[in-house]
Amino acid sequence: MTTPPSAVLHPALSPAQELLTVPQVMARLQLGRSAVYDLLRTGQLASITLGRARRIPAHALTDFIRARLEQEAA
């Protein structure tokens, strides 16, 4: 009996489904840890919790940036 290729068992995440760590978001926004956690706490930036780990979907970061740009343009 053969096993399916690993790509079938663990399909690669598309960029829209990518999960970012808090340090990755800190680097992308060039903000400190407290500022990122404030955005998460206030609901401005969506996240999920996996056990004790906090992950931010890449699309949530994109949506946050887009919303801030629209606020600045208004």
Rank of each mutant, 00 (worst) to 15 (best):
M1W: 10
M1Y: 15
M1Q: 03
T2H: 09
T3L: 03
T3S: 06
P4L: 07
P4Y: 07
P5Q: 04
P5I: 02
P5M: 06
P5N: 02
S6Q: 10
S6M: 05
A7W: 15
A7Q: 15
V8T: 05
L9Q: 08
L9S: 09
L9A: 05
H10Q: 15
P11F: 02
P11C: 10
P11M: 13
A12P: 11
A12L: 15
L13W: 04
S14A: 14
S14E: 11
P15W: 09
P15V: 12
P15Q: 02
P15E: 04
A16F: 12
A16L: 11
A16C: 11
A16V: 14
A16D: 05
E18K: 15
E18F: 14
E18N: 12
E18I: 15
L19D: 10
L19A: 02
L19R: 09
L20D: 03
L20S: 04
L20V: 04
T21Y: 06
T21V: 05
V22T: 04
V22M: 05
P23V: 13
P23Y: 04
Q24R: 13
A27G: 13
A27S: 15
R28S: 01
R28H: 06
R28Y: 02
R28D: 08
L29P: 01
L29K: 06
L29G: 04
L31D: 06
L31C: 07
L31E: 02
L31G: 14
L31Q: 05
L31R: 10
S34Q: 14
S34R: 14
S34K: 06
A35D: 05
A35K: 12
V36W: 10
V36I: 07
V36L: 08
V36H: 00
Y37S: 01
Y37P: 00
Y37C: 06
Y37K: 05
Y37R: 07
Y37I: 11
D38T: 11
D38E: 03
D38W: 12
D38Q: 14
D38R: 13
D38A: 03
D38F: 10
L39G: 00
L39I: 10
L39A: 02
L39C: 06
L40R: 00
L40F: 01
L40Y: 01
L40M: 03
L40C: 01
T42L: 14
T42S: 12
G43C: 12
G43Y: 06
G43P: 02
Q44S: 03
Q44D: 13
Q44K: 07
L45R: 00
L45F: 03
L45Q: 05
A46T: 15
A46K: 07
A46E: 12
A46V: 06
A46M: 12
A46G: 11
S47I: 02
I48R: 00
I48E: 07
T49P: 15
T49I: 08
T49M: 12
T49S: 15
L50G: 09
L50R: 13
L50Q: 15
L50E: 13
L50F: 01
G51N: 11
R52W: 13
R52S: 14
R52I: 11
R52M: 13
A53W: 10
A53R: 10
A53K: 12
R54H: 02
R54M: 03
R54S: 00
R55S: 00
R55Y: 09
I56Y: 00
I56Q: 00
P57G: 15
P57Y: 08
A58S: 10
A58K: 08
A58P: 06
H59T: 14
H59P: 12
H59Y: 13
H59E: 07
A60H: 06
A60F: 01
